[in-house]
């Protein structure tokens, strides 16, 4: 058994191959016995039961008229046809797109810049800054955060306008105009997720060998040039990952618009999820909501795929040029 003793360092190299082969066969035996499949099975069982089946069920429902009560009546494509003309639903999609433009570019850029700063030796107390910037993550998507922002952004009593008044800026109708409401919502989401995205970028940065930036510096490149020509291109996969998360996150907003603005004013901040929720639980149009869910799902998949294709095509292009 001494051969198998882990702590024995003094084995001759000649023994090693046989030993490895023996162990490999053991692992193979475990594999053949189906252990790994058993280990990954819970995921697939739960996914099939609680995601795949609901997706199918939802498809089934989307061709029916059902109010949660009584039988579901087959109505063919009527839900989809009605949905096509449902300006409110498309408005909710548009809102997400607009909201995305309101905060995601700014948030991504900020996250990137902050990550670069915190990755450089330029800034001290990195741990402290990282903690402070990341802190709001623990309140992301919470009821408490939405109410706190509601109070802070109150046109009359909120501290946002008090602060602006202090700076000599006239009060802003944070929640009372369509665009300001979108901006307020964007602020809340950005507040919660900036630190998270910064961490993702920071992780990506730490995987980049420092020699690359060093070499550029030796070649006489300034910090901004290094950032634009070295850091950003190398970090592109991570940036794409972060933006993809932001797309899905923005289109999945629910708690924030429900509690901060209740989808208003004039539906400017209503989201697809709010529409699905409202149509199901307030209006009992379950089939219609199911159709909505499917369109919503399709849009997200298309967006994610589009981004993936664009990125990979660009990669191929760059590679060809290289």
């Amino acid at each position: 058994m001494a051969v198998l003793d882990q702590s024995s360092d003094s084995m001759s190299p000649a023994v090693r191959p046989t030993r490895t082969a023996g162990r490999l066969s053991l692992r193979r035996r475990a594999t053949r016995a189906g252990w790994p499949l058993l280990f990954v099975a819970p995921f697939f069982v739960l996914f099939a039961l609680f995601s795949l089946y609901p997706l199918g069920f939802s498809l089934w429902l989307s061709f029916r008229d059902w109010s949660l009560n009584g039988p579901a009546r087959w109505i063919g494509l009527a839900n989809y046809r009605a949905l096509f003309h449902d300006s409110l639903f498309w408005q909710s999609m548009l809102n997400c797109a607009l909201l995305f433009l309101v905060y995601v570019p700014l948030m991504t850029l900020l996250a990137l810049v902050l990550a670069v700063l915190l990755n450089s030796r330029y800034v001290r107390l990195q741990g402290l800054w990282r903690t402070l910037l990341f802190l709001p993550y623990i309140m992301s998507g919470t009821v408490a955060a939405a109410f706190t922002f509601q109070l802070m952004l109150d046109r009359n009593a909120g501290y946002a306008n008090k602060f602006l008044g202090f700076l000599g800026v006239s009060p802003v109708p944070w929640l009372d105009s369509t665009w300001w409401a979108r901006i307020s919502l964007g602020l809340l989401v950005m507040w919660a997720w900036l630190g998270y995205n910064m961490l993702i970028m920071l992780a990506g940065l730490q995987a980049i060998p420092p020699e690359l930036a060093e070499a550029a510096r030796v070649d006489g490149a300034g910090p901004i040039r290094i950032f634009a020509r070295v850091t950003v291109p190398l970090l592109r996969p991570v940036i794409v990952f972060s933006v993809t998360l932001s797309i899905i996150g923005t289109f999945s907003l629910f708690t924030e618009p429900l509690l901060l603005t209740n989808g208003g004013p004039a539906n400017a901040t209503t989201t697809p999820v709010l529409q699905i929720w409202q149509n199901t639980f307030s209006f009992l149009r379950v089939g219609y909501s199911a159709a909505m869910s499917w369109i919503y799902f399709a849009v997200i998949v298309v967006l994610a795929l589009t981004q993936y294709v664009l990125v990979s095509r660009r990669d191929r292009y760059l590679e060809a040029r290289r």
């Binding site: 409110l88 004013p265 004039a266 409202q278 307030s282």
Partner: peptide, 20 residues
């Protein structure tokens, strides 16, 4: 259908009030 009617009318009323 009051709840739906009210919610749909509210949004249009808001647009009207905001001059949209």
């Amino acid at each position: 259908d009051y709840e739906q009617m009210d919610s749909l009318m509210s949004a249009e009323l808001q647009k009207y009030a905001l001059g949209k």
